[in-house]
């Protein structure tokens, strides 16, 4: 126990109430914390919802009503066909499948690769480790704008233009962001967890697979959500590398759709945007079960 506690916690602090002068029972204090926390969340909730509400109302309005200035928040009349109309204007069904394919491939590849690499950086000592880690971080530091063109030339010479390879294969090593994320998480797991297993004859890969990963569901879930979101929203990659419309992804379709009209049909755009935003939202809603109620590191 003592070995795992932060230095700041070593000196036991004296008992104290949440608010000075207010003494409550343990249960009461817990409830109070929750109530206060909940109340603090509400204004933020409104703040976050504000643009979203407008987006939803627009998705159910006629174009003429969306064009009201300033915007009117309650649709009159309610239009349900926007979703159908927007979705069928371009082959969004196909784009959906294309986007799903890329996003899922990337989640699997990147989370696997980054977790194992992050584990190496966090727990294994080797000459050159810190240097390589700085190289990893350095890939985040150069704006994509200037590497985009040389990279395009490279993939063109590989014959990969107008394929999904440039959008997936370069991620087979994970990304700096994820590697760094996993490294930070894995470094905060107490050493004792590993010692016992090493005595049992586990090699480093076994440790990663059997001990570390099961303990790391929160970060794996988080990483998956983030990669999915990132892949789902990527516009510039597909835009640069894809030529055929049948390979287009959702953001690319949406970009075309948006500006396909001189006068933007915001009601249709909003309806489509809501449909486009659904998979990451569902993933988050489901994924938080693993993220939040994750198995907690327990030391004996």
């Amino acid at each position: 126990m003592t070995a795992t506690t932060p230095s700041a916690w070593r000196k036991p602090t004296s008992a104290g109430p949440l608010i000075p002068g207010l003494y409550l029972g343990k249960q009461a204090r817990r409830t109070l914390t929750k109530v206060v926390g909940f109340l603090l969340l509400v204004p933020g909730l409104l703040w976050v919802l504000m643009p979203t509400v407008w987006m939803f109302s627009a998705a159910f309005s006629t174009l003429r009503q969306v064009m009201q200035f300033p915007p009117d928040l309650i649709p009159n009349p309610w239009v349900w066909t926007n979703f159908y109309e927007g979705f069928t204007f371009l082959p969004f069904g196909r784009y959906y499948m294309n986007s799903l394919f890329i996003a899922i491939s990337r989640v699997v590849l990147q989370v696997l690769a980054a977790s194992i690499t992050g584990y190496a950086f966090a727990r294994l000592r080797a000459p050159g480790r810190e240097f390589i880690f700085m190289v990893v971080l350095s890939t985040m530091m150069l704006p994509y704008t200037v590497t985009m063109i040389p990279q395009f030339v490279l993939f063109k010479n590989l014959g990969w233009i107008n394929t999904y390879y440039p959008l997936i294969i370069p991620h087979l090593g994970g990304s700096a962001f994820l590697i760094f994320l996993f490294r930070q998480f894995f470094r905060s797991i107490p050493e004792e967890v590993f010692e016992a297993s090493r005595l049992d004859g586990c090699n480093y890969f076994d440790i990663y697979l059997r001990i570390l990963m099961p303990l790391s569901m929160p970060v794996v879930a988080t990483a998956s959500i983030l990669v999915f979101q990132n892949a789902w929203q990527d516009l510039i990659g597909p835009l640069i590398y894809l030529n055929s419309t049948k390979l287009y992804t959702l953001p690319l379709g949406l970009a075309t759709f948006r500006s396909s009209f001189g006068a933007s049909p915001w009601n249709l755009i909003m309806a489509v945007s809501i449909l486009v935003a659904l998979p990451p939202i569902i993933l988050f809603f489901v994924g938080q079960r693993y993220m939040i109620a994750g198995i907690v590191v327990s030391e004996k």
């Binding site: 063109i149 233009i161 516009l235 835009l239 640069i240 075309t256 500006s259």
Partner: peptide
């Protein structure tokens, strides 16, 4: 077809690649 915002980016990449 390219949306206007990134028209030049795509065009220049194609030039740079010799295509």
């Amino acid at each position: 077809g390219v949306p206007w915002g990134d028209y030049n980016a795509k065009l220049l990449a194609m030039y740079a690649a010799g295509t």
